[in-house]
Design a protein around this nucleic acid. Structure first.
Length: 311
DNA sequence: CTTGGCCTCCGTCAATTTAC
DNA sequence: GTAAATTGACGGAGGCCAAG
């Protein structure tokens, strides 16, 4: 077994042991990623672990046989224990409404996320996708495709493409499915009507049917695909035009890909919010500690005043 | 250099909450 | 009631560090 394979094997078994043990010992068990970030924070901030490390928990699992022998927890009870709390955004916004000093979690991505902040000034995108090379594609209503490079700042990194055949898009059609690298090294984004948006290496060859790109930004053409679709990419199709089971399967696959893509982005955003939430809580703790210290000092002062020592 | 432990990040699934 | 959004849980991948 390779190093990596053995590591994963051990890790998996350890995880199973630890999760069972923790869930039987604590109310609600360990929330994985919170434990990740918080245990790391505890270590760096205080040098102590209030949350046990995996190795420590493994020791607990070995020594505490009762926890293991208890075995199955009643699923209803378990569900009640594991019942979800409100979202980070909601919790934090409630806190912020009570405590003016606590910032609210923003609805939009923060600037550090790389999305150009003034992208909305170009047009209101209905969908934003990120390609495999990190570029952003925003689909605005009316068929305008905006492509931006994450490295560039603001509008400079944006290009607007207006599809000549946009018109009224077929109902149910998904606009951009995937980005890939063609055989000639150009980049392709798949769009409706069995066409692709191809990154052109020579900007002077930009055709007239697309908006002119500025500066040394790459240009894009809308044309028929030169290569077969990569594995896993399914072209958009109107539900009304589905006939065969194969097409239905393709539609299902397309929907799944879209759902996974959205969930991927949602998970990223959720983790970002969670980090922000933890940061806010930490800063609040710091503020409260200072306040507490001041109040204790004040109390001591008042005590001295009210009951002066008589020598 | 190899190995083991730990950590972070990510993608995915599924349960739950929220918005309409 | 339902679709969409949110988030806990899980497991894989890879990096870092210390010990052997």
């Amino acid at each position: 077994m390779s190093k990596c394979g053995r590591k994963k094997y051990i890790k998996t078994n350890l995880r199973q042991m630890t999760m069972e043990t923790i869930e039987s010992q604590q109310d609600g068990g360990v929330r994985d990623s919170v434990a990740e970030s918080e245990s790391a924070h505890m270590q760096t901030q205080t040098g102590q672990n209030s949350i046990p490390t995996l190795a420590q928990v493994a020791t607990i699992a070995e020594t505490d046989e009762s926890a293991e022998s208890e075995g199955v927890i009643d699923s209803h009870k378990r569900r009640e224990i594991l019942s979800r709390r409100p979202s980070y955004r909601k919790i934090l916004n409630e806190i912020s409404s009570d405590v003016p000093g606590v910032p609210k979690i923003e609805e939009e991505k923060s600037e550090e996320e790389g999305t150009p902040p003034n992208i909305a000034t170009m047009a209101v995108p209905t969908s934003i996708y990120q390609t495999s090379t990190g570029q952003y594609i925003a689909i605005a209503q009316g068929g305008t495709i905006q492509i931006s490079n994450p490295g560039s700042d603001g509008v400079q990194g944006l290009q607007a493409l207006t599809m000549t055949n946009s018109g009224a898009p077929p109902p149910g059609a998904t606009i951009v499915q995937y980005a890939t690298q063609a055989a000639d090294g150009t980049q392709q984004f798949f769009v409706p009507g069995s066409q692709v948006v191809v990154q052109d290496e020579e900007t002077e060859l930009a055709p007239s049917h697309m908006a002119a790109a500025t500066g040394d930004m790459p240009t894009y053409q809308i044309r028929a695909p030169t290569t077969a679709l990569p594995q896993g990419v399914v072209m958009a199709a109107s539900p009304g035009s589905l006939h065969s089971p194969q097409q239905l399967a393709e539609e299902a696959t397309r929907k799944r890909e879209l759902r996974l893509m959205k969930n991927r982005e949602a998970a990223k955003e959720c983790r970002r919010r969670k980090k922000e939430y933890v940061k806010c809580l930490e800063s609040r703790v710091a503020v409260l500690e200072v306040q507490n210290k001041k109040l204790i000092e004040e109390l001591e002062t008042l005590k001295d005043i009210c009951s002066p020592k008589t020598d």
